[in-house]
Every structure is written in C-alpha cells, then in structure tokens.
Nucleic acid binder design. Structure first.
Lengths: 215, 215
DNA sequence: AGCAAAGCGGAGGAACCATCTCCGCTTGCG
DNA sequence: CGCAAGCGGAGATGGTTCCTCCGCTTTGCT
C-alpha cells in the first residue's frame, strides 16, 4: 500500500472512518437514496466534511461497495471449493441472497448499472466466471437441470432479494422458504420435496406485509 | 343503474372518459407515481379538469383499479372451474402475473396497502377465498406439495412480478421462464422437469437489463 | 338567438425535497 | 505558538409534485 500524497490529519482520518461506517449502515438499512445530510448526522459530522472527502455521493457509494462486491466474488469462489457441486451452488445462492437481504444498498449497486460506479461495475464482472463454473459443475454432476444457465442465477438472486425486501419487516427469513421452492425447481428430477423452512405467513401477517411495503 | 344526481354535460363526460383512458395507460406503463399533470397532457385536457372530476389522485386511482381487481378475482374463480386442479392453479398464476407484468399500477395497488384505496382493499379481500380453494383443491388431488399455503401464492406473484418488471425492456417474457422453475418446485415430486420456456438471457442482455433497470 | 350554468385550461402558488458550496471558526501538529 | 488543515451547517440552487384559481369557452335550455 503506497502512502497517498500526504496522510490525513488524525481527526480527519477519524471522521473519514465515521462517515464510511455511518454510510454503510444507512445505505444497508434504507437503500442508496438516503441523503448525505442523514449520513452526516448519523456520523456526527457536518455535511461539508463529507464533501471535502468525497467529491460527490457516487464516489462515497463506490468507496463503500467496491469492497462488498469483492466479498460476493469471494463467496462464489468459495462455492467452487465445496466438494459437492450442488451444495456449492446452493451455498453461494444462500450467502449472496443473505447479503442482498441485509443490505439494500448492495442490492441496488449489484443489480442496476444506472450511474457511474465504475469500480463497482468492474467488480461485478469478476463474479460472472465463477458463477458460470458453479452452474456447469452442478450440471456435470447431474444435480442441476440441464437447461438452467448462468444468467438465471442473478435473476434468482433478484427475485429472492425482492421477496426479502417485501417481507423484511414482518418475517425477514421468508425468502428462505421461497428459495427452497426455487431450488426444488432447479433439480433435474426429484422424489420428494425438501421441507419448506420458515412457516408460511398468516393472512394477517400478509396484510401487514402489504401495509408496510414501500414498493 | 340509478341515474346520478344529474348527468354530466356531453363534453364533460367525454373528457372524463379521456382522463380515465389516459390514466389507465400511463399508470400501467409507468406506475402510480406519474403526475396528474402528465395524465392531463396525455388526455389532452388541463389539470384543472381532472381535479374537478376527482377530488385527488387517490380517487382517480381507486376509480380505475377497482374494476381491474375484480378482473383478478374473476380469474381466480375461473381457475376453480378448470377440470384439472393443477391446471386451474397454474392458469390463474399465469394470468394474474401477466396482468401484473403488463400493468405497473395494478401491481402497486394489489401488493401494497399504503394509501387509502378503500374500495381497492375490499376488492382484494374477495380474492383470498378463491385462492385458498385453488390451493386446497390442487393439494387434495396430490398435484401440489402439501406444505404450500395460500399466502405463498401472492408472494410468488410478487416475486415473478419483480422479475417481469426488471427484465421488461429486454425480454418481457422472462418471467415465464422463472415461473416454470417455481412451478416445478411446487410439485410434490416429479420425474423430469418441464422444459424451460423462453431462452435464458445472454450475458450482454443481462447487462442491458441492469443498465435499464430502475430499481 | 340568447343567456345562465357548467365546464375548461394551464399558469403558478405552496410545499416539499436533495445536492452541494461557502466561510467564519476550531483543531492538530511541527 | 502559529498556521495549514479541517470543520459545521445554514442556505443557495435547482428540482419535484400536488392542487387552486379565475378569466374565458361551451353546452343546452327556452
């Protein structure tokens, strides 16, 4: 790690860290459209302090999520190291969706290319090859239906991410139930069905989901 | 049909219809947050004309979607009339998701309870019993896994609706591919797998999906 | 034809909201 | 101690959207 042009003053460095921690937390909880004013308040600094360190919101977002996306790439790679190809794929899916479910900002950054986010985009590109291999390996072992393809995986992540977000206030684990359904659908054939985890929503709970949903 | 207090003047009635047609079209294409100014422009009238006929945006939304929700209830009821219980359930799911996919406003009104929308809410309540029956019937026939429940159905609709919205600009039929996966997951057991309809996205297409997605 | 009531258009008022700048004051550190 | 670096946060700027208001037009009745 080459030292930057000149190190930050001690207080400035501390504030920088506070800002990143606060932004990480708020982006995760509320999505990318929290205001930087809110981030500043949460970090206990003034907005000006953020703008002195990051040219604009984009840059802050990039700084935070580049690392997290590398994390997902790591997850995919780790899936390839699992002995059973099916377990490797499923493990990756579960872990990735869990991250999506817990971090709204991450989801937005992963699944939309909208703004700039150059570094984030390149991080995403590094994931694809691992996923392709994960899919092929499971198919070669006869555990995954032959007509599934690489691009189906992020779509599945997106689908379940949507469920997670929709139900998060009432039953944050509901996505696991739906994922089990999808996984059973991904097998080439099967005798029984995996028992669905997480009990279904009651009618009342479903109403609460609708009431609290901000589509 | 009892005549209202007094009939609208001919031109007023014509405008009312234009407004409803325009609103239906724009709400379907762009969601519920189109401005009434946009609706007015599309209808070829002034905003004032809308506000003379509808107290506010909510009332216009209610007027439009009450009817459409009755449509969905009709679909569920029709599913019960299908001889094969599984086909009845699947037919309902497909038809309902197709409507969701084609009408963003409908999706918002069906799956969130946010604002007032009293009439719409009551319409929705009428659907649940049909869905319950649809599920029970398919389970009794041994076509649907026993641990699936009524509230899973709208969640599935939501999930696929999300996919439909996400991919709409690149491959509007992609949700059918994902639905097939889910349906295979809903069977108690199966020998093979239904062939996935709609080819998977290419890597490039997936990138375009991300680029055009407005999460 | 003529007139009153009904209807119309759309500029603009009011109320939000988020991003980012600026500058007088404070703090760290050599 | 002195000065460069850093700070806070009010507010400028530019963007929304909802809805009202009123001078003018149209309809339909007599």
């Amino acid at each position: 790690m080459a030292a930057g042009p000149r190190p930050l003053r001690r207080d400035a460095e501390r504030n920088r860290e506070r800002i990143i921690a606060a932004a990480r937390e708020l982006f995760a909880r509320d999505g990318l459209d929290v205001t930087l004013d809110a981030v500043a308040a949460h970090a206990g600094v003034g907005v000006g302090t953020i703008y002195r360190r990051f040219a604009d919101k984009e840059e802050l977002i990039d700084a935070i999520f580049e690392a997290r996306i590398a994390e997902i790439a790591g997850l995919a790679e780790a899936g390839l190291a699992v002995a059973d190809p099916w377990d490797g794929l499923v493990g990756f899916l579960e872990a990735a969706i869990e991250l999506h479910a817990a971090d709204r900002g991450l989801k937005a950054v992963m699944l939309s290319a909208e703004h700039g986010h150059e570094r984030v985009a390149r991080g995403r590109d590094r994931i694809a090859p691992f996923v392709t291999r994960l899919v092929e390996r499971a198919q070669e072992a006869g555990h995954l239906r032959a007509d599934a393809e690489t691009t189906d995986i992020p779509l599945i992540q997106f689908m379940l991410g949507a469920v997670a977000e929709y139900t998060r206030d009432v039953e944050p684990q509901m996505w696991r139930r739906m994922l089990t359904l999808v996984l059973d659908g991904l097998r080439p054939s099967r005798g029984g069905a995996a028992e669905l985890p997480v009990r279904a929503l009651t009618q009342r709970e479903f109403e609460r989901v609708m009431a609290t949903a901000r589509l």
